[in-house]
């Protein structure tokens, strides 16, 4: 899986001090990719939904997306913007697989 673009998200969570980006992937996310992200934080997966939703959360970072989409959203608290690159590197280097 490769990240082909990174777009500032329309989600306006900035009012709570968080900033979000959509990471655009070269293919739709499947279960294997989603489950490979589990080490990045506490993991919630609503697999019963017709379009399953996942969320991975830590104190300073939040990742969420829907299975079948070719993007996922990453939000970081303003004080931890450097942690954004960490996610990018992990996915691009395939270390989550």
């Amino acid at each position: 899986m490769k990240i082909i673009d990174k777009i500032a998200s329309r989600e306006r969570c900035a009012e709570a001090g968080w900033y979000a980006w959509d990471f655009i992937l070269d293919q739709p996310m499947d279960d294997a990719f989603i489950l490979s992200l589990r080490p990045l934080g506490s993991f919630v997966y609503l697999s019963m939904l017709s379009k399953p939703f996942f969320k991975i959360e830590s104190d300073y970072r939040l990742i969420k997306g829907l299975r079948g989409d070719n993007f996922f959203r990453v939000a970081v608290h303003d004080a931890y913007r450097d942690k954004l690159a960490e996610v990018e590197a992990l996915v691009s280097q395939g270390k989550t697989e």
């Binding site: 989600e11 969570c13 009012e15 379009k51 939703f53 969320k55 829907l66």
Partner: peptide
């Protein structure tokens, strides 16, 4: 709320608003 709004938009095509 933000996650619910995300699921509603991405999974169901329903636009609501979440937050304060």
């Amino acid at each position: 709320p933000a996650d619910a709004a995300y699921i509603l938009e991405g999974g169901y095509g329903i636009r609501v608003r979440a937050g304060l």
